[in-house]
Structures are given as C-alpha cells and as structure tokens.
Design a binder for these strands. Structure first.
Length: 595
RNA sequence: GGCCCCAUAGUUCAAUGGAUAGAACGGAGGUUUCCUAAACCUUAAAUUCAGGUUCGAUUCCUGGUGGGGCUACCA
C-alpha cells in the first residue's frame, strides 16, 4: 500500500506542481496512533515544488488523492503532515489474503538468497556454560531462524576451544585428585565435573604461588614457576607431541564435557549443523601463516615469531605465531575461516561473539583480506553486549557466575510456583504440567534476554528472577493460549468462520488496528534480518499481544452480533495466533496451547 | 596514553531525522452475569551537559562529563 500511495503522490506532484519528486522526497509512514488516518505523508520535503505553506500543500495533495484514488476514504492535515485514511473495505480485502495463508505465515523472501554461516556458542571445555553463553546461544539460534525465514541457506556452527593450557589444567588436577571419578560415579554432569577440577587446579596454583611470593619471589615469576603450573606445561607439550596417555585422558574428559554441553544445548533448544574443534583448525591456520610468510605478507622477528603489520589499516602489529612456533588464538581463527569457506562457500559468515572481542575480529578480517581472500568481506562480527549483574560484571573469582543449568531449572521452578499459586492447570496430568512449566520458564528466560537490543549491555537480576507480567514471554504465551481457547470454545458451540465472508465484513477501529499490525509481520522479520536483531521481532510480538488483549477484552464470540463481524473477529484471532507463534518461533520460544 | 562502545521515568527496556519521547515493573486507584484476572482501565514520573547542521535532533557532527570494553607470545 505504501508503494501504491507513493506512486499516486508522485503523480499528484507532477500534475499539481509540475515537479519530479524522487523517492527520498516522498516520505510515507504509518500514522501515529493518536491521529486519525492510516498513512501519513510528510509534506516538508515537497515544499520545494511549490511556494505554498505546508498546510496548504497537504490540503491540495490530499484533495487530489481523495478525488482520484478510490481506496482513499478521507484525509486531514495537521501542520506539515497529511494523514490519509484508507477505506475499511481495502483493509479487509487485504487481510483476507493473510487469513488464507498457511503456517508459513508472513515470512519474507529475499530476492537473492545467500549462504550464511553462523558461528555461535563457542565454549571452553574447562567450564560449564553460564549466563553469557545463554545470551550468545539464544541470539545465535534466533538469527539462524530469522535468516532462514528470509529464504537464506543458513548453517549453524560452533567452534570448540578444546586445546591449550587451560585444558591441561583440569586434566592434571583430575589425575592428581580425581580417584578415577567419572560423571557416572559422581552423579555430576560432565562439564560440571571437569569444571570442578579446573577450579581445584586454580586454587592449588594460587596457594603454591603465594608460598613462593612469601619466600621473596615476585608475583609473575611465582605464578610461572609454581610446580603445578610447570607440570601443566609439560602436559601441554606431551599433548602437542601426541603422547598416547595424555591424548586418551584428553579425549575422555572432553567427551564428558560434550555430553554435558549437549544436555544444556538440548534444554535451551539450540543445535548445530557442524562443529569445528580448535584442535583440528590450528594446524591449517599455521600452514596458511607460513605460506603468507613466504609470499612476503608477513614478517619474522629476530626471536622467530611471526607478525603482520596492520598499521596501514589503522590497526597495530599483530602476532600470528609465537616464537616457539605454537599457534595463538587468531592463528586458529584464520584456519577455521579458510576451512569453512572451503566447506560451504559462504557469502557471509556471522560470528556471534561478545563485544570485548571487537578488536580481535577487526584484525581477523584485515589479516584475511591482506592474505588475499576475497570472501573476507563477508565476515561479520555480530558483537553483542555483556550480561551484567546488578552488582556489576560476573566474576568467577568472586563466585558471581550465573550457571546456565542452574538458571534453567530455577526458571522452571519459578514457573511452577507461579502457576500453582494462581491455581492453574488443575486438570492436567503431572507430565503435561511439567511440559508446560518448562515452556513457560524457558519462554520467560529467552524472551527476557532476546527483547533487548543485542548490541547493548544488559542487566540481569537473578534474585528478582524474571517477571511473568508485562513485556515478557509468558504474557505473549498466555495471549496465545487464550486465542487457542477462543477456538476451542467456538468449536464446542458449533461456531465456524468462513474466510469467504471477509471482504464484506464490517469493522471497527480495533479490528482495523489489528489488521494493520498483522500486515507488518513480514516487515518485522525483514527488519530483524537486516539488523540482525531478534529484539525487533520480540518487540513486535509484544505490541501485537498487547493490542490483541485490548481488543479481546470486550470480544464476545458467542454474542448476539452479526455473523460477518463474528467471522472477522475469529479470522483476526486466527491470524494473530499464527503471527504470535511464528514470531516466537523465530526467537526459539515454544508456545503452549494452554497454560 | 591510544582505539572502540554506551548514556532515555525510581528500575528494566522502546523510538528508518518527523507530530504531544512509547511500554513494562514498582507506587496509587478501579474493572470479573461473557470469552483463561498471568488480563483490562485510570494516574504520577525521563532524553547526561554545552555548542553545531536542519523547516524539524533522543537520533547526525564537535567538545565536556560519567560508565564499560580492548590495547597478551591468554582464549
């Protein structure tokens, strides 16, 4: 409609003022709620074509449109804004097409589908997942769904940091103190078990270092020469040499961790199409570095470490390989990127990684470009903000890490408490109830995190937990459950609706308001895709649920109203239900039929 | 020191350069003969400061203040 209107306005300008208005000058937007009208033309930019006041100009264009375009019911001019009213019949005619859509409701389709790789999650194998990972996983997974809904081919990948000194730390502690403890024998989730030994190492290391400091050593030397740290380094050397005993221990403990992670991923409802391991990509990365060195893109320092000079790009000099020939973080990322391009020929590769690594990804992109990979332009660092607690950043030293598994079960528990307190779900079986508590608890958590603009830091208050009222997941879920209920009731009383009746339906302002909102669903999806922001979809869902609730409040299906209006309302409910569930699906949030 | 990001009601979040800056929570008050009261309605409350560009700035530019991040031969 906007486009049709723009065209009509362009013609009007031509006829009335003999001016050629280009697209930027014709600004049509939706009319704000507190004014009458559906679309609004901003008149200011068109003043250049005539010498009238803005009001006069709006008046002229408005009357011309109303006279020549039947879908325009009326208009009014306020200051420099021309509000155009579109006829109800046009809205309902437009809506009946939506009512007929299948369950792929409102997906937008881009004209040029691309292959997009999304990397998210990226855990370390020595610690369980925490709140920061939850935000990462939810954003990554939702981006996957949003980009897919736009018609792109999207591959979800994960890169696991399974190599390096940190892994040796937990292995060593387990060897010393583990007594062959396994997830099975301890009853601990694998990632938590390994995390426990990592913490144990850190404690012991600290004690040894303190002892050395009190005997007169400076802090850095003490940390480096603590016996347990030396042992860890020896273990890393053995690992890199492929020592069988160390490798076996490494694979065993990693497999525990992966089992633990899988459980958490499953609970969060996220998954991956392809998992890369740092242990498999650092070597290709090193090879690439050597090749680039031969080509003269890189340089070697006297201590034989390898560097790249990025000062021309406004960045610094960056180390790509240590003097002892071992790989650093970025070496591995170079290897991974090249492997991925070979595997999938991606157009874009989106890295969902926290904003503390902005510099790292700037460098990565620049390095790959310098190395001559044209696809490096398609690397996108999707930088999201930190999750902070009311008292500030999460710090493991202060024990303020919010564990992912704990949080998920707390959310389910809260959902249970709230539901029981409200006296809900009396007639369900225990299993059905658990399932609903799970959906609500996770819905609350996911929505709470995804509704915030991902680029911004956000505050998470665990003690207040998460609200179930207001702009929340459960509010939207509840709205959806009531829509389903409307249809259950309608069915019971034998009321059917007939989409064929829609074009002639009467409609009030509330109906039109909702129809307008529903039309915007695919717009919200494409906006979310271009901005890479699930928050756009989340806030759209909330607006819709809110409008629907207001509309629903005095909505009586079984009342004495005429058949056509009843039909329209049922149709709106149906489409609103589709839009809400489609929208929440894009966020990875499940919708219960009842709650 | 250098580079990057952020700043909106008491709090948590919104607002392609457009109209009177929206919600929610919390506070105060109200609404269930019909649809699920996890709802709905009413009410008080905000753009960090100073300039600039513009018909028009929360939005863009410059500077100040305040907060966060990066600046590892860690990942």
């Amino acid at each position: 409609m906007e486009n049709i209107l723009k065209e009509k306005i362009r013609e009007a300008v031509k006829v009335l003022f003999n001016g050629n208005a280009c697209d930027d000058l014709i600004q049509v937007q939706e009319t704000r709620k507190d004014f009458t009208g559906d679309f609004t033309l901003v008149v200011f930019p068109l003043l250049r074509f005539s010498k009238n006041t803005p009001e006069k100009n709006g008046e002229i264009i408005g009357s011309h449109l109303a006279a020549t375009f039947p879908a325009v019911k009326g208009y009014n001019v306020i200051k420099g804004f021309l509000n155009i009213e579109v006829s109800d019949a046009w809205w309902i005619g437009n809506f009946s097409a939506m009512a007929a859509e299948n369950d792929l409701f409102g997906r937008c389709r881009v004209s040029k589908p691309e292959t997009i790789l999304i990397e998210y999650s990226s855990p370390n194998t020595n610690k369980p997942l925490h709140l920061g990972h939850i935000r990462n996983n939810l954003i990554g997974f939702s981006l996957y769904r949003i980009q897919s809904a736009c018609g792109h081919r999207v591959i979800k990948t994960n890169i696991v940091n399974d190599r390096g000194i940190h892994i040796c730390k937990s292995m060593l502690a387990w060897q010393k103190h583990g007594n062959s403890e396994t997830p099975h024998s301890s009853g601990l989730k694998g990632d938590h078990l390994v995390g426990k030994y990592y913490v144990m190492f850190e404690k012991e290391w600290k004690l040894e270092a303190e002892a050395l400091i009190s005997s007169g050593m400076n802090e850095e030397d003490a940390r480096n020469s603590a016996p347990i740290m030396k042992e860890a380094r020896e273990m890393l050397i053995k690992w890199e040499a492929g020592d069988k005993e160390v490798m076996d221990l490494w694979s065993m403990m990693n497999s525990w961790v992966y089992e633990g992670f899988d459980e958490t991923y499953h609970a969060l409802g996220v998954d991956f199409d392809k998992i890369y391991y740092e242990s498999e990509t650092y070597q290709p990365g090193k090879d690439i570095v050597f090749k680039s060195l031969e080509k003269g893109i890189l340089y070697r320092k006297d201590d034989s470490s390898i560097w790249i000079d990025l000062t021309a790009e406004g960045l610094d000099q960056k180390l790509l390989l240590r003097s002892d020939g071992t790989a650093v973080y970025i070496t591995q990322d170079i290897g991974t990127a090249v492997l991925r391009q070979a595997d999938y020929s991606f157009d874009k590769c989106i890295y969902v990684v926290g904003n503390e690594q902005n510099y790292h990804f700037q460098v990565l992109k620049a390095v790959l470009k310098r190395m001559g990979y044209p696809w490096s332009d398609g690397l996108i660092h999707f930088s999201y903000g930190m999750v902070e607690l009311p008292e500030g950043r999460m710090k493991s030293r202060e024990g303020t890490i919010v564990d992912a598994d704990d949080l998920i079960s707390e959310m389910k528990e809260t959902a249970r408490e709230v539901s029981i307190e409200l006296g809900k779900l009396g007639d369900f079986t225990a299993e059905e109830r658990e399932e609903i508590f799970r959906k609500i608890g996770l819905g609350a958590l996911k929505y709470f995190i995804l509704k915030v603009d991902p680029r911004k830091n956000m505050t998470f208050n665990p003690s207040e937990s998460i609200d179930f009222n207001g702009n929340t997941g459960p509010f939207i879920q509840y709205t959806y459950a009531r829509i389903r209920s409307v249809f259950r009731k309608a069915e019971q009383s034998g009321v059917e609706y007939d989409p064929a009746l829609l074009p002639g339906s009467p409609a009030g302002p509330k109906e039109i308001m909702l129809i307008k909102l529903l039309r915007n669903f695919s717009k919200a999806v494409s906006e979310a895709a271009s901005a890479n922001s699930p928050a756009v979809v989340a806030n759209y869902c909330y607006d819709l649920a809110r409008e629907y609730n207001q509309f629903y409040h005095d909505f009586s299906i079984l009342g004495e109203e005429n058949q056509a209006l009843r039909n329209l309302r049922l149709a709106i409910s149906e489409v609103a239900g589709k839009a809400l569930s489609s929208g929440m699906w894009l966020l990875g949030i499940e919708m219960p039929d009842r709650m």
